[in-house]
Design a binder for these strands. Sequence first.
DNA 1: GCATAGATCTTTTTT
DNA 2: AGATCTATGC
Length: 733
Amino acid sequence: MDRENKLNAPQQEAVETVDGPLLILAGAGSGKTRVITQRVAHLIRELGISPESILAVTFTNKAAGEMKRRVEELLGENTAGLQVSTFHSLCARILRGYGDRLGYPRNYSIYDEQDSRHLIKKIIAELNLPARQFIPGVMLARISSAKDRVLGPEDYAKTCHDHFSKETARVYERYQQALFEAGALDLDDLIMQTVCLLQTVDDVRDYFQQRFVYVMVDEYQDTNFAQYRLVKLLSDPQGNLCVVGDDDQSIYTWRGADIRNILEFEDDFPKAKVVLLEQNYRSTPNILDAAYAVVCGNFRRKDKKLWTRQPEGEKITVILSESDTAEADLIVGRIKTFQENGQYGLNECVILYRTNAQSRSFEEAMRRFSLPYVLVGGVKFFQRKEVKDVLAYATLVVNPHDIVALRRVINYPKRGLGQTTLGKLETAAEKNGHPLLHFLAEGEAVAHVVSSRAAKSVAKFIAIIEELSGLRDEKNLGDWMRFLVERIRIKNELQSDDPTQSQTRVDNVDELVAGAAEFAMINPDATLEDFLEQAALITDVDRWEPDTDAVTMMTLHSAKGLEFPVVFITGLEEGLFPLAQAMQDSDRLAEERRLFYVGSTRAKKRLYLSYARTRRRFGETVNMKSRFLAELPGDSYVTENHIGYDRLGPGGLSYQRRRVARRGARPVGLPQGANDLSAILQAGMRILHPRFGEGLIETVRGYGAGLTCEISFKSGEVKTIVARYANFEILGV
DNA sequence: GCATAGATCTTTTTT
DNA sequence: AGATCTATGC
């Protein structure tokens, strides 16, 4: 109770500083959400500010929901009109109301990456660009990054000098045009077009500037240029802008997040006040020290160090396993032991990994140990094929111009309308000047361009859409969706293909219908458009329920903003974490370090860092201990070694029964050419080389077959040696 | 128009 | 290694 409401001095200062620009540098676990919610409460209760004048923006629906809940807890129901939302839903809302000023319809569709890629692929084909070089995903990434910087097609074209970029600019232009004709915006458009709207339409900008007197932004380190512009446009001219963030937790620069937004806030707003929140209320000193040691490898960070009043707690545990499978078994087994001993419940444990692909071995281990688990991320619910298929029908009813939705389902379930027929119909509709769906409803015109069999199929398809449109106002959302699912007979379709997957797919369709019904129940005034909007903007973490009695597994990125008593960070191997692509580039490596910092500071009581000696990844077996482990303060952790070796002469190492050995226990031979043993080589090891004698490993670089060591020998010589050819012996650590 | 076999890519992270 | 996309033949 005390902890919830009593604020320390800097927190208090942050809460009470309401006028002018304010930067709150909030370290992990420093009570950031408490400060934001209390600040909102302070504005309303102490200063009598109307809730409608306050805007708080976050990145996830979950964070927004949590913030809203906690403000209500403080103020009761006196929060009507308070705007707490994500960047995307705020913009979606603004564009529903005022997008017509830019020519967008009220019922616009929101395209996800998949939809966008589909459209770009079509444009690439239309422009006759060779598919070999012009890959939709790559072009989309370029376009998306342009939109993050608020560069429209013409602005972007000015920055293009090479052939590929110039062609991308052409595709970009066509793509924007195609989106516009489809009455659609992609996710980046939501932000960029809102910025355009506020920049160019004076009365709309004036309205929002007057409405939002106090603006707050959470996770400011993750904002991109477009979001920065948006925030600035909304908070000007009063400039009561409060941003909260932590440059050490910036882990989305690859998505356009510009760390300069936070690093240069004080230059940008010269009158800005800065408050540092450095007292951590979450983790033990050992955990904080380790996290700090790794992130300190970075330059160009705001200097701050978390401290805590908490007792030291247990040391971090570093676990070395034989393989990825063994790693999973060991960790899942440990969790089961925790549960059986009553130490920690399943929902107090989280398994974190760098890439979604790693979840697989843990899922299998969970099944072997028969423990319940919740997987967050991976293929998102609303992205699943069967769910998107159902939603495409609904979207078409709302927005008949949506060409991507139409193409998605015109032949699903199969009605014999393939590429050729679709091509004919599209050409005819274009000539005719009608949107494709409207053209399809003109029976005679259709019969003119395609076979009578195809025309019949088209008529059937149109009948479904018209029937659905007719029932829209009669049925409530849940019933309407149920009817839609029955009408297109999608469940029968699903049952007839792949039997191993069909049940899950049918379940997903049922869950979608149930979700729609629930949505309608919670929001009685909600329209089908509202439901589709939320389906487009919700993420998997948003759907995660922390109270379920199950182990949570997710990527390090997804874990941002969450906390758990017990955290396992897995796959700490060079090439995986840090990721191979990041190892050559110091900026990307810095981001991996921050990701490690984010991951480890999720832990309240116990932190486990795990790596495997061999891991099957993408065909090959590559492995070497992550450099991050070498950067941990020596007294903050203990090591559990779960592999053992027998020395069988040169090149022969055999796996013994699993046992716990002390760190660097005995000499271990290194077989020639066995690149999968690189996990055991680390800086600081003493080795014996057949020619150069005894030496000390200074640094280890690369991984797999390319693994090299820099070794200083007794003779004083320093040599760089390719490990797989060296055939040296390890004497110890 | 569709089924099958072969080719290719994936595995970085997501609002 | 497995999923997904493409080309080919029916």
